[in-house]
Design a binder for these strands. Structure first.
Length: 937
RNA sequence: GCUCAAGUGGCGGAAUUGGUAGACGCGCUGGAUUCAAAAUCCAGUUUCUUCGGAAGUGUGGGUUCGAUUCCCACCUUGAGUACCA
């Protein structure tokens, strides 16, 4: 009987689906274990071999945990709202729901053929109304909450209005907008309802505000900070400009400190934690207020070095700073205006790229130093960013490189306030080795002391206070797109109102066109049935809008990260129509034990999810405030592109080895036309694209050899390898083993189809170990010592590997085990049966088939993981390596229970040792028990 | 610029309390089988070598009887971040 992988794999995939082998139950005697993958966005291109890498790893772990007796939750679903489906709809008019459903079908087929142990009964789709009902529900919860700094948690908005109506807002310690006017209880109660709503918006955890946002004209939408890379949009690389718009925002700033501290409680990689820390960007320092001379104005600055306040010799404002026009003197106006114009013309990107050029302008105004009362010139400069801190800095040229360079460039004095430090060449920014001088009451103090004292003095004068600043901004939550969650919001007199939870979901309306309207409104502006009737509590036609009961609905939709910020909780109870998930389900599953996914989500999905989880925890909805205990980032599988070389200006193509003699252009061609020796099939190439139809080829040794380049697997490089082909040719088990065998999980590694024959022939050998020409040749023979040794060292190694996520090395371990057992002619069931359990997480189909052939009726996945017995590995003696002066010379068999002294005697009495020593007496003999004997002569 | 990670055969990669470097696989070489090919099996495969050995884990130092592993400096590559006051 041959190893017919196609037949076996189809058979068992069908069996698992029909028997619901991997269905997880929400209560069990067994301990729970939750293994989660980052769910995919179902793109039109389908899966390539790079996509399943993380899924295979998590599947191995999930199957391993089942063998260990855990009740395992291992779900999968689709992040199915998003831009590509919408852009496809704009081009073709096809409804995104239809294309998305088609894509999901392809994904499901491709995932199924790899043999994952997902519990598909728990599938979620973020674009499904029964799912986004809960996305909308969470939005309403956020709207109805404020953040109380006194007890450090989110509270219901009703507790805030209670305080307002009894004592006003002066004692409220909340995370809210800046510049809130204070009011008394009487004033609050006298405010109109609209005014009250306006004020509450400044406290709510999601709020509507006119803010400066990142507007991407080409995409026709605003973007969050994490969707912008190097000043252009992450998707498509379009330019992004700053623009003031009224938008929904999420008050994630309320959670900065808890998001930071929570990182210490979870087992995520240091790199990932570090990038979240950087993104949050905490810096501790002080805010200082400088009075502007001859103006009724103050400049607030944030500084991390209040200890250097006596070193201030000028101040710098961002060119966009609101005070600039107010304080600029008539003489300086022309220069300042010209500078502002020049910087406005430069794109964000130019400004970032060019950090060396120093530029700025003097406003003519002076501020007053809070202690010395000296006048300080006020400049503007584009090295100060409007978006960070207050958009103004106190410049201390002796202690900051940028201030130093600016001062040098404009000939501003550089007073030295550091004792015994030479600042004639560069600034001294070292906090640790500072002794302050020339600074009145700070003289002689170190950084720590001086900082404390300076803040104290500033507070005494009412000119400043200790302050912590964060880089993390509130997250803009509106998108001007069609294919996203609609907001459960309608407007009465311009004020947003929430639709009551019992009327959710508010389903996405049908539209004729998916593009924004001519007036710049989002695509939902094209909907004709998109108004809310408060009498019937339903969506009605726009033409019924009146002032009393029918109101316009919000036209924006939610961003991509909304639906992915709680899906891991919904998996626990995905069909529940009454709750996001039942309390029993959440109490049972608690959180994700192992989360595997790409590191590109470090500052997006993974930060927002933590934010929502903490909020839902505050509200008592979820039982824990970090959703994933452990997280692993899998690396990427790269493609190996194939390149042909066209001789410039001709239709001739030159082989790789000869290209040096020509002026050439590189053209990437489909890797599937190239064999493992980098030789391309010329006939296929000619047919592949019209430009090659009558091309001529300059060959080497009668062949055309392509060039190779390792890069991201992508359609545009024609280097995509489809898992369908691999499964068909070698089987899913080969694919699974090979993806693991390629290298460490976290690493980036190139795909090379040629290498798969190694793991494939291993599976054939494994099959042959069990099945011969005339059927199964496994019997009840008593295992030999060698059999047991092979089995148990394999158990030990595989278990260690899985627990350390070193899946690549256990594939080698299996190969060695099968080779050894084959050489030992092992037929013993006692050995061969547990071996299948070890292999089944990696290659489940073949394991299931052989397990079944051995006469088991239950799935192999229900079998316990074999127990390791060290006694089979213990030896009575060991080959000790003997070295002379550190050089390995020979080995010597010695009993394991021998004492140190006896080993020394035995070694020195040995003939070979005598030979090595050549009559000399050794100075020293070093014995490391169980390892080595070293003789020093 | 800063932060982090990594540098081992032709290639992917093994090797952790510091103890025989190159496991396992690909590729390559030779052989068996075959009319031939594929498949399969066997042997070999770090480099140099006067066949005794010698050198060898990015480079240069250090600690140690002994270093791929620990320490210092440097070089290279990759990732992240970037005027954050």
């Amino acid at each position: 009987m041959k190893y017919n992988f196609n037949e076996i794999e189809t058979k068992w995939q069908k069996y698992w689906a029909e028997n619901k082998t991997f269905k997880a139950i929400n209560n069990s005697e067994k301990p729970k274990y939750y293994v989660l993958d980052m769910f995919p966005y179902p793109s039109g291109a389908g899966l390539h071999v790079g996509h399943p890498l993380g899924y295979i790893a998590s599947d191995i772990y999930a199957r391993y945990k089942r063998h260990q007796g855990f009740n395992v939750l291992h779900p999968q679903g689709y992040d199915s709202f998003g831009l590509p489906a919408e852009q496809y709809a704009i081009q073709t008019g096809q409804h995104p729901a239809i294309t998305t459903a088609e894509n999901i079908k392809t994904y499901r087929r491709q995932l199924d053929q790899i043999g994952f142990s997902f519990d598909w009964s728990r599938e979620v789709r973020t674009s499904d109304p029964s799912y986004y009902k809960w996305t909308q529900w969470i939005f309403i919860q956020l709207f109805n909450s404020w953040y109380n700094n006194d007890n450090n948690k989110a509270e219901d908005i009703s507790s805030l209005t209670t305080i307002f109506s009894s004592e006003g807002n002066t004692n409220v310690n909340a995370v809210c907008d800046d510049n809130i006017e204070s009011f008394s209880a009487e004033e609050w109660n006298a405010f109109s309802s609209e005014k009250q709503q306006q004020i509450l918006l400044q406290y709510r955890l999601t709020y509507l505000a006119e803010t400066e946002v990142n507007w991407c004209p080409d995409l026709g939408t605003v973007l969050a900070n994490d969707e912008i890379v190097n000043g252009v949009s992450e998707r498509g690389g379009h330019p992004v400009i700053r623009k003031k718009m009224t938008q929904w925002s999420m008050r994630i700033s309320a959670y900065t400190e808890r998001l930071l501290q929570g990182l210490d409680t979870i087992d995520w990689t240091d790199a990932l934690k570090e990038s979240q820390r950087n993104w949050i960007g905490k810096s501790v320092g002080a805010s200082v207020t400088f009075n502007v001379n001859e103006h009724d104005a103050v400049i607030d600055v944030f500084t991390t070095r209040p200890d250097t306040i006596f070193g201030v010799s000028f101040m710098t404002l961002a060119p966009e700073h609101e005070l600039v026009s107010q304080i600029t003197t008539p003489e300086q106006k022309a220069e300042v205006d010209a500078y502002i114009l020049a910087t406005a013309k430069r794109s964000e990107r130019d400004r970032m790229a060019d950090v060396k050029t120093i530029s700025g302008a003097f406003t003519g105004a002076y501020a007053e130093h809070p202690f010395t009362k000296e006048p300080i010139p006020v400049w503007i400069g584009d090295y100060v960013l409007a978006g960070y801190g207050t958009g103004a800095v106190m410049s201390v040229p002796c202690g900051d490189e940028r201030d130093y360079a600016f001062a040098k460039h404009f000939n501003i004095p550089i007073p030295n306030i550091f004792d015994g430090v030479d600042i004639s060449e560069e600034a001294f920014a070292d906090k640790a080795n500072t002794k302050i001088g020339n600074s009145d009451f700070l003289n002689g103090m170190n950084y720590k002391k001086a900082t404390k004292r300076a803040i104290y003095e500033l507070e005494q004068m009412g000119q400043g206070e200790g302050k912590t600043n964060y880089r993390l901004r509130d997250a803009v939550f509106s998108r001007q797109r069609y294919w996203g969650e609609p907001f459960p919001v309608y407007y009465v007199n311009g004020m947003p109102q929430m639709i009551e939870a019992e009327h959710l979901p508010i389903k996405l309306p049908e539209v004729e066109k998916y593009l924004p309207t001519e007036t710049g409104e989002p695509p939902l502006g094209n909907a004709t049935v998109w108004a809310w009737c408060t009498e019937t509590n339903s969506v009605v036609s726009n033409d019924k809008i009146n002032d009393t009961s029918v109101f316009p609905l919000e036209l924006n939709t939610m961003p991509g990260w909304a639906g992915s910020s709680f899906y891991f909780m919904r998996y626990m109870d995905p069909e529940n129509p009454n709750e996001m998930a039942s309390k029993e389900a959440m109490d049972y599953w608690q959180d994700v034990d192992l989360y595997i996914g790409g590191s590109e989500h470090a500052t997006g999905h993974l930060l927002y999810s933590r934010f929502w989880q903490k909020f839902l925890f505050d509200k008592g909805v979820v039982p824990v405030d970090e959703f994933a205990k452990k997280l692993i980032n899998q690396g990427m599988i790269l493609g190996t592109s194939a390149i042909v070389y066209r001789v410039s200006g001709t239709n001739q193509y030159v082989s790789n080895g000869l290209k040096g003699d020509f002026e050439i252009e590189e053209i990437r061609v489909d890797v599937n036309m190239v064999n493992s020796s980098d030789e391309i099939d010329i006939e296929e190439l000619k047919k592949w694209q019209p430009q090659f139809n009558d091309a001529e080829f300059i060959l080497e040794d009668g062949k055309y050899i392509v060039g190779r380049e390792v890069e991201k697997m992508s359609k545009r490089w024609f280097n995509v390898v489809n898992p369908d082909n691999i499964c068909e040719q070698y089987g899913a088990d080969s694919l699974r083993l090979y993806e693991m065998f390629l290298g460490p999980l976290e690493q980036y590694k190139p795909w090379n189809t040629a290498g798969i024959t190694g793991v494939h022939s291993f599976l054939k050998k494994l099959w042959k170990l069990y099945v011969g020409e005339n059927g199964l040749h496994v019997n009840d023979a008593t295992p030999t010592k060698d059999n047991l040794k092979t089995l148990h060292k394999t158990i030990k190694k595989v278990q260690e590997d899985i627990e350390n996520f070193s899946f690549n090395t256990s594939v080698s371990t299996f190969m060695i085990a099968v080779n050894e057992l084959t050489a030992q002619k092992c037929t013993s069931k006692e050995i061969l049966e547990p071996l299948l359990v070890l292999i089944s997480p990696y290659a489940p189909h073949i394991a299931e088939e052989l397990w079944n052939q051995l006469g088991n009726n239950e799935s192999v996945s229900t079998a316990p993981f074999p127990e390791f017995d060290a006694s089979h590995l213990v030896e009575s003696s060991k080959n000790y390596p003997i070295s002379f002066n550190g050089k390995m010379r020979f080995t010597m068999e010695l009993p394991l229970d021998m004492s140190k002294d006896d080993i020394e005697k035995a070694v020195l009495g040995n003939e070979k040792t005598q030979e090595q020593l050549g009559g000399r007496t050794p100075k020293k003999v070093i014995v490391v028990p169980g390892k080595i004997v070293n003789i020093v002569g």
